[in-house]
Nucleic acid binder design. Structure first.
Length: 828
RNA sequence: GCCUGAGUGGUGGAAUUGGUAGACACACGGGACUUAAAAUCCUGUGGGGGAAACCCCGUGACGGUUCGAAUCCGUCCUCAGGCACCA
């Protein structure tokens, strides 16, 4: 009765079965323990790539495993559907972004379904639907009320080809994260989310995320960039308001000889006005601001600047410090102004030497005395203060506090903490995104769209201008509205939100995707969240994960969520590699998952992805490896039917079969233990599969031990083994296992079958193998009864001929016995 | 430069945390079946020596701790990723 294994038929059959029985539907049920598994939702680019497949395979094993463990599992899927590629495709193919996006979603959904993932498709969502983004608009307005959103004119990163502003997080090496074009600086109005308000909490909570990879936490910490230091006010000559600076080295204040301003700093032009320096400053500022990031800040950029013509006063020394504009000063960090201490800061040192400015040593190291005139580089390390008035002789670390206190008493500053992270600019001059729900009125300013008018639906009747810019500002009927406050003519905001806003809360919406009385249903979100296991690529280590954490804290403070953090455990899976490089179209090493599925079936693809490497490491794709997975599946199939076809003969007695039975059962239960621990505790799916392969090998050699009918007891043990084999494999390769499970006479729907537990008694053995070492080198092994005494083990070991050879003629100093494992005889 | 990781056979990777290094698989060699090939099954496979029993060497390098080190400590090398004129 053996059938041939036909993956296409088998897989379709069971996918239909699961769908019909609604096996993956997650229902809110506070009486049950929940488990939320989430893989980062995809951008609907057109078709799945191997990276998606791997990501979702890992999540699916966990989801199915937890279902079998009896937990109430939420395992949803949806679409990060707004974004630039849809617009580019629309312009290129003369179609509409919505049409292109929905077509892609349909194709990718059917690919996901073809892979047999255990998603609750009833919870599917797409961020481009008004039912989704209306709540994002609602949240925007709530944040506006709470002062967490504000509008400001600022110098922003701008990408010309994408014709849009980019967040700091979206600039990589001075270039656009999407199209790699160098970004330019530009002054523009835009909306900002006040993520800086949560900087301290976001940083502190890094300690509260033990389930996250250290690498990701470190990246987040660095991004937030906390540094302790002091703020110091420097009075300006002929002006009331002082310049404020931030420094991590207040101990060097006595050595500050000049001041540097970022070219963006408004004081540059203001201070130089009317001085002989005015035109030189204008010229310099202009020049620097039009450079792209690489040219200004790149490795080859030289430090340069010009004098503004103005002076400020060192609050402790009274020294007149010339104020310079310098290209290397960052406007975005600290206050955009820096006190320059050339003796103890390399940048200031280079600048001072170039423009012949004073260098004053104020920190003297132990040993050789620093002399300002002889220095070739700045000394930035520790030492004792000199030339620093009352602080002379003090350790510089102690002086920081002393000087800060003195400044405080003079009302000239004090200790402070500065963060590197900036507020999140969310305005995008693009069409395919969620409209920002604001109306600009000449009289009333920026007025929120009244809540009852939400959602502000993105107009669908549009024409893309030749230039490629957003069509929204040209849509007169949409733009021209009346002010909700004064009723006069007003204009709608035409910017849309950064797509990272949508992905910052989609995991909450999965808990209540059809809820229409609010952004989220507090009760359901309180039950399902946080996500117990989140899985995705490490490329989102900063952006998406930080924004999501920020949103969770906002929603918590609004009373909508009860948790502090969105994701309890995080797994960053490795890339899929082929021929030593990441799969990419430009390298021509892309493997299309669809072709593989068509050829081998979903189970083979799944098994290969899970077996070839541990989840967090890069996966090296080889076609031989895929064939190996295919071979294994066919062996399992043959094994199950081999068992079913075993001849039966009641006259064969059980006599003498006890040991066989014991061995089979021990292997069975050992494997259950190993696989359970590998999935649950270690997330090492590759070794779980390896253990199952060993199990299959073991069953195979027992099954084909001899021709003819086996004793009934052996048949029974083999039956248990085969059933367990199929059960343990089911989260990995769910289709073939359902088919075999059914063939074995069991009820299908394996996610409802309880995950097996092992019987510790069956793991016990009567004898154990002891490795014998002499002076730490293996010289033999001996099998002894488990309950053998230490003396008996020693005796048995020393009786071995090879051991004798190495012990003879020497004195045994001691013998170290590791129970049930090893004996090391130390001789000398 | 700073911060994370990681270096183990021909290859992907094991070694459950200090106790038999190389599980499992891929590739390759030998054999069986076949007219032949594919598939399948059996078998070998870190390097060196030996007929064999066994022995020596071996986890990026060199030291150290220990009865015992891939694992812990120190110094260094290489690779990958992140941050980078952050005052």
């Amino acid at each position: 009765m053996e059938r041939a294994y036909n993956p296409e038929v088998v897989e379709k059959k069971w996918q239909e079965f699961w769908e019909e029985k609604k096996l993956f539907r997650a229902e809110w049920d506070p009486s049950r323990e929940k488990y939320y598994v989430l893989e980062m939702f995809p951008y609907p680019s057109g078709s799945l790539h191997m990276g998606h497949v791997r990501n979702y395979c890992i999540g699916d094993v966990l989801a199915r495993f937890k279902m079998m463990k009896g937990l109430n599992v939420l395992h949803p899927m949806g679409w990060d559907a707004f974004g630039m590629p849809a617009e580019n495709a629309a312009i290129k193919n003369r179609t509409h972004p919505a049409v292109w996006t929905m077509g892609n979603i349909n194709q990718m959904r059917s690919q996901l379904q073809r892979l047999g993932y255990s998603y609750d498709w009833e919870r599917e969502l797409a961020t481009c639907h008004p039912q989704y983004y209306r709540w994002e608009q609602w949240l925007f307005l709530e944040m506006l009320k709470r002062g967490l959103v504000y509008r400001k004119k600022s110098i922003v990163n701008y990408c010309e080809p994408c014709q849009t502003v980019l967040a700091n997080e979206q600039v990589e090496d001075g270039a656009c994260w999407r199209c790699a074009t160098p970004v330019v600086q530009r002054e523009q109005d835009g909306w900002f989310f006040k993520i800086t308000e949560y900087a301290a909490e976001l940083l502190d909570w890094c300690k509260g995320l033990p389930g996250w990879p250290e690498k990701v936490l470190t990246m987040q910490r660095n991004w937030i960039g906390r540094s302790e230091g002091a703020r110091i006010f420097f009075d300006l000559e002929n002006r009331d308001r002082p310049i404020e600076v931030f420094t991590t080295r207040p101990d060097t204040l006595y050595g500050a000889t000049f001041m540097s301003l970022a070219p963006e700093h408004p004081l540059c032009l203001e201070l130089s006005k009317g001085t002989p320096q005015e035109s030189a400053v204008k010229h310099f500022v202009n020049k620097v601001l039009t450079l792209d990031w690489q040219a200004r800040m790149g490795e080859n950029a030289e430090k340069e600047g010009v004098f503004t013509g103005a002076y400020c006063i060192n609050p402790l020394t009274g020294r007149r410090m010339p104020i310079y504009v310098a290209n290397f000063v960052l406007y975005e960090y600290g206050t955009g102004a820096v006190m320059a201490v050339p003796a103890h800061d390399q940048r200031d040192f280079e600048f001072a030497r170039k423009y012949d400015l004073d260098v004053i040593v104020v920190i003297q190291p132990d040993g050789d005395e620093l002399k300002a005139l002889e220095m070739t580089e700045a000394y930035a390390d520790e030492g004792k203060l000199v030339n620093s008035g009352e602080f002379n002789g003090m350790e510089n670390v102690k002086a920081m506090k002393g000087i800060a206190e003195k400044l405080e008493s003079m009302n000239k500053g004090g200790l402070t903490i500065n963060y590197r992270i900036r507020d999140w600019g969310i305005s995008r001059q693009r069409y395919w995104g969620a409209p920002i729900p604001v109306i600009h009125c000449e009289k009333c300013g920026a007025v929120p769209v009244p809540e009852e008018q939400l959602p502000v639906v993105l107009p669908t009747e549009i024409e893309f201008p030749e230039s490629g810019r957003s069509p929204l500002p040209d849509l007169d009927w949409w733009v021209n509205v009346t002010c909700p406050q004064c009723g006069k003519p007003a204009k709608r905001e035409t910017d849309t939100m950064d797509t990272f806003v949508e992905s910052s809360w989609y995991f909450d919406r999965y808990a209540c995707p059809r809820y229409d009385e609010g952004m989220i249903n507090i009760e359901e979100v309180a039950y399902w969240l946080p996500v117990d296991q989140y899985i995705g690529g490490v490329e989102h280590a900063i952006l998406h994960l930080l924004y999501s954490r920020f949103f969770t804290k906002i929603l918590r403070d609004m009373g909508l969520k009860k948790t502090d953090e969105p994701f309890t455990r995080l797994l960053t899976q490795g890339m899929v590699i082929k021929d030593g490089a990441k799969m990419s179209k430009s390298k021509g090493n892309v493997v299309d998952p669809q072709e593989l599925i068509d050829r081998y079936g979903a189970d083979v693809v799944r098994l290969f992805c899970l077996f070839a490497a541990p989840p967090e490491r890069d996966l090296d794709w080889t076609s031989e490896g895929v064939q190996g997975a295919d071979r294994f599946l066919r062996r399992v199939w043959a094994l199950a039917f081999g068992f079913l076809n075993l001849p039966s003969d009641p006259s064969v007695s059980d006599g003498g079969a006890e040991e066989n039975v014991r061995n089979i059962r021990r292997l069975t239960h050992k494997t259950i233990k190993k696989v359970s621990e590998d999935i649950e505790d270690r997330f090492r799916l590759n070794t779980a599969v390896a253990a199952i392969m060993e199990f299959a090998n073991g069953i195979s050699s027992e099954l084909y031990r001899e021709d003819g009918a086996p004793p009934a007891a052996v048949r029974e043990a083999l039956g248990e083994a085969i059933r367990m084999l199929v059960l343990l494999l089911s989260p990995f390769i769910p289709h073939i296992t359902e088919e075999l499970w059914e063939a074995l006479g069991e009820d299908p729907g394996m996610v409802r079958v309880t995950w097996p537990s092992y019987d510790p008694k069956l793991l016990e053995t009567e004898e154990v193998l002891i490795v014998i070492q002499v002076n730490g080198k293996k010289r033999g092994e001996v099998t002894v009864p488990v309950d053998a005494s230490d003396e008996e083990v020693k005796e048995a070991a020393l009786a071995q001929a090879n051991v004798k050879r190495f012990v003879e003629g020497k004195t045994v100093r001691k013998a170290i016995l590791v129970p049930k494992k090893l004996l090391n005889v130390v001789v000398g």
